[in-house]
């Protein structure tokens, strides 16, 4: 996306040694990560690891106590181009105390620092319809949001964030309470946006159907970055499979023999969604998700065998690539 100004080349999101305390309680300490233009990054972590706090800090809802957050190269308090950012807060419902139609809710996403006082015009209506079409909800534009299922309401919230045609889309747990049908629609919509060059940062509990889209995962633990690199399926401790965390020196039976620490792993459940075979080198058609030159490379998301050469420079050689994810039906691992 060509933009005027000096921010070309600046990462969409730069989090530098950020510490955040809420109500005197430290939540994040020294978090450092970057989301480059065009990347799709998943933020994983157990409940209470601080991932929601981190995205709320990135969008300016919580004040930064230490370090700094930059959006498109501009540090946060000075950043004013909020029309470039689409935000999907964590919600169980899109409804409020008074009925509102899907169209009305999505329309509110068009308001920006410069246009909140204006009137609605024809281009605005077109933008609303386009955003709803992206999430497959255009036929519900006149329905009250309260009459929709949880997954459909979630898609309305995403359409609301998309209406302003953001360069950066930030979503807090967009898959919470979303039924399987909606999850797939949602994954398809995200793939389309990513192809158009939208940078996406999303908080997830597990990758699930989104796995093919994710360029990188960042795993938080106890308010710090525990892992930042090639996609891993799990970000949180699972009582049954607590040892499958990235960063553990544990090699799983179905992992490749030379799997390194930080290996993407999948619990040996009965029918995992994906079985990941690990290889050390990026063999096959690699999709470069590296920091440089990622502003809109042709992506092979969803193709048969996407090799991923990923990760920040420091960790690049230690990290494995995912080759040939074989997809099976069943619960997410």
């Amino acid at each position: 996306m060509a933009r005027a100004g000096s921010d070309i080349g600046a990462p969409a999101v730069a989090v530098r040694e950020v510490s955040v305390a809420l109500g005197g309680r430290p939540i994040l300490h020294g978090v450092d990560t970057t989301v480059h233009s065009g990347e799709t990054v998943a933020l994983l972590g157990a409940n209470g690891s601080g991932k929601s706090t981190l995205v709320k800090t990135i969008v300016g809802l919580y004040p930064v106590d230490g370090g700094r957050v930059e959006l498109f190269g501009t540090p946060l308090p000075a950043f004013k181009s909020w029309q470039r950012v689409g935000y999907v807060p964590q919600r169980t419902t899109a409804a409020a105390g008074v009925p509102a139609t899907v169209g009305e809710v999505v329309f509110s996403g068009l308001l920006t620092p410069r246009t909140w006082i204006g009137r609605r015009g024809r281009t605005d209506r077109a933008a609303v319809r386009e955003a709803l079409a992206t999430v497959g909800m255009l036929d519900r534009i006149g329905d009250p949001v309260a009459a929709l299922s949880g997954g459909q309401q979630q898609r309305v919230l995403i359409a609301r964030a998309l209406a302003r045609r953001p360069d950066l889309l930030i979503m807090d747990e967009p898959m919470a309470g979303v039924d399987l049908v909606s999850q797939q629609t949602f994954a398809d919509a995200l793939a389309g946006l990513s192809e158009q060059g939208t940078t996406i940062l999303l908080v997830l509990h597990e990758l699930g159907p989104l796995a093919p889209l994710i360029d990188r995962t960042v795993v938080l633990r106890a308010g710090g970055v525990q892992y930042d690199g090639a996609p891993v399926e799990h970000g949180e401790d699972d009582p049954g499979h607590g040892h499958e965390r990235p960063g553990h020196d544990h090699v799983h039976p179905h992992d490749a023999p030379n799997a390194a620490p930080g290996t993407p792993a999948c619990p040996p459940g009965p029918t995992p969604v994906e079985t990941l075979k690990m290889t050390m080198s990026s063999s096959g058609p690699a999709r470069s998700a590296g920091p440089a030159g990622s502003a809109g490379p042709a992506r092979s998301a969803g193709s048969a065998a996407p090799g991923v050469s990923a990760g920040p420079a420091g960790a690049a050689n230690a990290l494995p690539s995912i080759a040939s994810p074989t997809r099976k039906a069943g619960p997410a691992c």
Partner: peptide
């Protein structure tokens, strides 16, 4: 949605 409005600027 107050939070959304805040982020919208």
């Amino acid at each position: 949605d107050e939070e959304f409005a805040r982020v919208a600027g």
